[in-house]
Design a protein around this nucleic acid. Sequence first.
DNA 1: GGTAGACCTGGACGC
DNA 2: GCGTCCAGGTCTACC
Length: 297
Amino acid sequence: MTTTLTLAAHPPFSLPAVIKSHGWIQLLPFAEDESAGGFRYIAHLDSGRVVTLRVQTAGDGVRVDVDTPLDAAERAQVAQAITWMLGLEQDFSAFYALARQEPKLAHVEARAQGRLLRSPTLFEDTVKTILTTNTAWGGTRRMVSALVAEFGAPLPDDPAQHAFPTPARLAATDDATLRDVARLGYRAPYVLALAQSVASGALDLEALQGTDLPTAELHKRLLAIKGVGRYAAASLLMLLGRYDFVPVDSWARTLVSREWHDGQPVGASEIEAAFADWGPWKGLAYWFWDWDHLSDA
DNA sequence: GGTAGACCTGGACGC
DNA sequence: GCGTCCAGGTCTACC
């Protein structure tokens, strides 16, 4: 027996657009399912069960298949998780109205761009974001894979596959293990401290999903997390649906430098200034800007 | 508020 | 195979 859920999305919606919105699909326990045009995600449910969610386009939303019967609470959790992960309820009509006036963003509405693929929990997204800092993408993939393989709960039908580790599981490890086994390097104490504060209840990260806190306050709270600086905080704000900041990394500096500064070095202030007119949509304008002509940068 | 140096890893490169 | 250099954000100490 299997379980199937059908979830509607606020139009316009494109599952491939969400999947390709950034690199998260390449990080375990996500896996792209190209034959179905969707993805798989190994979820560790509150009930303790570990299941594979198979997601593909269906009608104006998505269909979620699970290879096992789920009880009512588990079904509700899966529906809530997928709705959050894909931003099914997000409305970008205000952004699209502005984007129509800008040739470099004229494509976003037709492609249904705007949603960014999220993990089910802000804890997972925060750990992954910390692991994107000060390293190449290959390093991020390696560190996330190691964390999942070493500390994630195994899938019963295929124990070689694992869910993302829970805060409690990571909190139960130690700095040296995270350095030696997962090769997190100097990031190990950051991830450990985050896991411990979430597991102990000292930090309620998940309460920030859908919070109505002002963006400035949210920004402040994210920056208070060790290992989360300006770039990581801006990235996490984007995942939380707040686009007031541009995640300034070396790639952003390269793009903005070549687009508006004739290849001369630029800093965060120049990047923020380049998108200042986009107000609460700065981050999205940067993210979906048509940089194609700079792809060899 | 701004800046320099340390942090850690893996890849590129030269020998 | 080995050693060196470099890129990638954040933190801390210092001015």
